[in-house]
Structure formats: C-alpha cells, structure tokens
Nucleic acid binder design. Structure first.
Lengths: 334, 334
DNA sequence: ACTTGGCACTCTGCTTCCACGAGTGCCAGG
DNA sequence: CCTGGCACTCGTGGAAGCAGAGTGCCAAGT
C-alpha cells in the first residue's frame, strides 16, 4: 500500500511543512526534494497518502499538510533523532554544572530545553517517593509547633509544619529526632511506612503522642501524597508561530498553568528511559489536543517539551533526550 | 483648564473603554452617562482633553480612547479603590488559610490574585535580607561536603551546599553548628556580617578553615546576593482580550519569564504600604510598555498584577491591596 | 502497471470599488 | 457657554473581479 516513495513523499511533506508552515504542493515538493519523479506522480502518491489519512488539505486548492496520523508515522518510522552537536553538548553540560542547588538545576534545565527546542519546556522535580532520605531534621519552632525538614539524596528539601496538641520539651524533640533519624536514614520514602509502623510501641510512652503526630504528618504529606513539583518555561515560544494556534492559545496556556495537567503529561511516561511522543489528539488533556508533547524520564523524574503538532520532532527528541541524560547524571552524582 | 465636567468626561471615557474595549464617541457617552449635556458639548470637552494629551483617537472617524496620561489622571484623581465585598474577603481568607507551607501560600496567592483581577499575578517570596533566622541546620552530607539549611521566620527554607577543601569530622560539624546557631538565632540576615565577623578568631583553631568556608557561603549566597524568588500565574489572562496585545503578546510573555524583570517590577516599590501603579510607557521594562502594573508590598515582600493599560484599576488596586494585607498577616503570624 | 504531460476546475487571497455610518470639527444662534 | 446643524473624513464591510496555486483526472508513453 505504502511503498518507499510514498513514505519519502510523506517525509518530505512533513519536513517542508514543519520548516515553512505552509501547505506544500506537488510541484514545489517534486523539485525541491529531488525525488526524481514528476509533480503528477507526486500528486498520485499524495492522493494515496490522503486516502490513508496521513495528510489532508485545508481546502481544495491548497497544498497538503500532515495529519496527526501522518506525524505519528513520521516519528515512528521516517525520522531519526537528530543528535546534538558536540558544542551544544558542551554548552548544556557547562550550563547545568553552574547550578548551585536543586532549584537552580531545574530552572536551568527549563531554560535550556526551551531555548534548544524553541518550545515550551516542562521539568519535574525529582520524585519524592523514589527518593532516599539523607537527613531528617526537626526544628522546635514553638512549644507546640515543630518543623520537619526532609532532605533527599536528589537534593530536594521538603518542609512541613506539625501542630501538636500540647507543648513538648526540647529533650523530647531530641529523642524523637534521634529515633526517626536512625530509622529513616538511607531509606526510600516508599519504604517508610514499614520502617515506622512499630515505632510508637518501641518508643518511651511519654513521647508517644508527639511521635504519632509527627509520624502522621510524615506519612500523610510525604509518603501517601507526596508533593510533586513541576516547573515550566518558554511559554513565549507559543507565540512564535502565531499561525499555529489561531484561537486556541488560550486553552493551551490554561492547561499549562495547571500543575495537575503537567504532572499528568509527565506521568504518562511508562518506560522511563525512552522518549515518548504524544501528537495532537493523542493527548488526554483537553486543552492540549492541538499540541504535541515530547517527554522522557531522567531517573527520579521526567521532563519534556510542549509545542505545536507542527514541530521539529527529530530535534525536539534529541534535545529532550540529551538534557534528560545530563540532568539525570547530575542529580545521581550530587 | 480642566473643569469638573471635563474630568467627568474623562472618567466616563475610561470606564466605558475599559468595559467595552471600543473607542467611545460623544453621542453614546452623553446619553449613557447622564451628564446632562449634549453630545456637542461633550465633543468640545473631548477636544480639550485631547489637546492636553489625556485622550486620543485611533483615526479621524473613531471615538476616543484614553492615553497613558489619561489613565494616570484617572488613577490619581478620578477613581476610588473598589473595596472587596465581605464574601470575597471571606473567600480570600479561607483560601489562604488552607495553605500548608510557604510555597503553598505563595502559589495560592498567585492563583487568587489572577482570578480576582483576571490579570497576570506576580508574587514575591518574603525577602531573605529582612528575614530573621529561626534555625540554621548543618547537615553532614559527605566527608567534605556540608549542606546548610536556613529557616527564616517567614517560613522560607534555603539550602546551600558547601564544598570543603578537606574532610571534616562529625564532632567538628557539631561545634560549628552550635557556634553558628548561637550567633544567628533571632538575627536578621542583614545583621549577620556584623555578628559573624569575629567568629573565626573566637573559634578553636582546629575548625577555622571549615568555619571560614561555611561563613563565606553564608555571607555570599544568603546575605550579599540573597536569592529573591518570584512566582507568576494567570498568563492565560493575557489572551482574554486578544485585541489588547495585537502583536505585542510575545515581548510581554518574554519579559514576564525573566525573574530579573519581575523583581525589578516589584522592587520599585519604595513605600511598601501604598499601592503603586505603573501605566504603559511609565514602565522601565521595555517589553511591558504596553501594560500596566499594579504592585504593593505586603511586609517582607511584594506582589501585584500585570495587565493591559486598559485595566480595571479600581478593582485591581482593591484586590491587590486586600490580598497583600491577608498574605502579610498570614506570614507575620506564622 | 506505473509514470507523465496536459488541461479543466476549484479554491483562496488580494484589489478595487462603493456605499454606509460613526464620529468629528466648526459655526452660528440661543 | 451650551446647543443644534451640517459638511467632512475615514474606516468597515460587502460585492466583484482577477491572478495564482494546486488539484484531479485522462490519455498517451515507456
């Protein structure tokens, strides 16, 4: 059904349309891509591709543009990832290494990705649940108020306030600090419920009430529904090609403002090591049906870009993969 | 030069234009605002207002629209702040009180502001320099690597990694922790240089090298150039009135992505208790010359909104002020 | 069976033209 | 100083016409 030349035509259409943002006609295509056949032949192939739903045309006398399905085929079978140039790689590395802390790493990654791809970039903080506890500090803020500070191996620092029913002494706080510290040091957060379950019984009766308050906060806010954080940047790129989002910029921006939505995007990454591409209507999120999303896991989290379906997929995939790799290494080694 | 009626006409023009987004003509204005005079009279007044530079018209046969100068006069002399309704106040309060930590307070404030005003909201984290140290924790990450965690009275938690030249023992770390803790507890960050200057001499010689490394990081990253953070939200509102930013949406989005720019906006607040309004060309930031910015300090930081010059100033000022008040109270009491 | 040139057809986009209407500026009279 | 009247300007919107791009299909060539 689809011989090699037809696929070649499809590739040419995608590439042309991506770079010019204009429907591409048979004539221009035939001569510009050295296919060695006449426009008429190309037209026949185009008709076939259109029958199969890979391309369409906005109106009768316009050129063709790829459909979501066409992009899908292009991504799956016709394109190959565009690797970054060595200078680019060096630039990424040195830019990321300049970061002073985790926040900085994430911010820099976002900026990097959006500049490399000219799209909107999304970077998730390393997930808490998979993280390992490096330190748990308890600060005695007020007689009946504690602040828990959790530091993970990925550099994340989480804080939670614990309101107690009654006042507690500094000494008791020290005891609890030591107890918890021993149990949790080096544990991953998913393991903590098991590690902590017998703690109240094992502890001196005097501190049990306080201990349970602390434990409930730890379990509730760090383990059961650990806060996932996502940072976004480069939204100005959405206006780059005003033509891409005729009247749909609004919903896109709205969707991108929702943490939940972003998490869902990044969370759909099953296999964390391969790059995932969601094209147009494939997106579960309503407001992003006119966009494509390229994501990949970097270890403890995920990152990606969001842009028009008319996107430079090979470039985006290459950039996303490269940045994920560097970020992953950086955080693993930190 | 400008009698009361002319001012009244200006007010009417601003209000009409803000609500309809269409140039307003003499006829509609005369009848809709019950000025008690004929359109012809209004026209004369308009001509005067135009001579003074308060209004202009896009083309000969169109109605008038306010200039930046006109808005300025309106804001300064013709409008009065629209106070929020009691239900609105209650909603704000209960929404903010649901926050679990500082990050949450800031995020909620941004959302609140953008929803109240239908503009882009900007909220600065409580500034570090004015903050008081509530706790300084030193975590021994690796033999030659420490993590400083600083907790302020406003709830901010800052972390910095200190790389040491050589390994250090847990005991030495404890000593330093105690030393620093004593000196810094309750101090504001601006005071710290004074409080710490004699510390190296006062400390046991053995730990001096480590101590100076730690001190230099504290001073450099927390005091000399303390990291200011800003959160932004509601950018989708920029697309609400597509007509407001014909081809200028791009630079606005770009400007808003720059932390520096946002800080500059909020930093221009001299008198922290009054609301500041920057209209159009008054803005120092290039990309925001087509917008207006309404800001106010809330105590340890500032917040505000960014929108088209054609903005509901009384409403925006009221909302900004109200939110700032609640946020200020919340953080002061926390 | 596939390719190719030719040709008629169908659109869109652009211009021109024109009439309409909103809105103004000005003037003379109350 | 206000008001009604009136001529003038100018953008808007619709109709009409035209050029260009691109298609679909057919018949002939390889």
């Amino acid at each position: 059904m689809l011989d090699d030349r037809k696929l070649e035509v499809l590739r040419a259409i995608v590439e042309d349309f991506v770079s010019t943002n204009e429907p591409v006609g048979s004539k221009a295509l035939a001569e510009r891509h050295g296919l060695g056949v006449s426009p008429a032949t190309v037209r026949n192939d185009m008709a076939a591709l259109e029958d199969e739903g890979y391309i369409t045309h906005p109106h009768t006398s316009a050129g063709r543009i790829p459909t979501d399905r066409g992009y899908r085929l292009f991504v799956d079978r016709l394109s190959q990832v565009k690797p970054l140039s060595p200078p680019e790689r060096r630039a990424i590395q040195s830019f990321l290494e300049g970061a002073v802390d985790l926040d900085d790493v994430v911010r820099r990654s976002v900026r990097l990705l959006s500049q490399l791809t000219h799209q909107v970039a999304v970077v998730q903080y390393p997930s808490l649940s998979r993280a390992e506890v490096r330190h748990l500090e308890i600060v005695h803020l007020a007689p009946n108020r504690l602040l828990l500070v959790l530091i993970t191996d990925s550099g994340r620092v989480e804080q939670r306030v614990v309101e107690l029913h009654g006042p507690v002494s500094d000494d008791d706080v020290s005891v609890i600090r030591t107890l918890l510290g021993e149990r949790l040091h080096g544990a991953t957060l998913v393991d903590t419920p098991a590690k902590l379950s017998d703690l109240p019984e094992a502890a001196p009766p005097a501190i049990r009430p306080v201990l349970t308050s602390v434990l409930s906060v730890v379990l509730a806010s760090l383990v059961e529904k650990p806060e996932e954080r996502v940072v976004i940047g480069g939204t100005a790129n959405l206006t780059r090609n005003a033509l891409d989002f005729p009247r749909t910029l609004r919903p896109v921006l709205e969707a991108l403002e929702e943490q939940v939505v972003l998490l869902r995007l990044l969370g759909e990454v099953n296999d964390p090591t391969t790059v995932h591409v969601k094209i147009g209507e494939e997106n579960a999120v309503e407001g992003l049906r006119s966009t494509s999303v390229v994501t990949v896991g970097y270890g403890a989290g995920a990152l990606g870009v969001v842009g028009p379906t008319r996107m430079d997929y090979p470039g985006a995939i290459g950039s996303v993969r490269a940045v994920a790799r560097y970020v992953g290494d950086l955080l693993a080694g930190a």
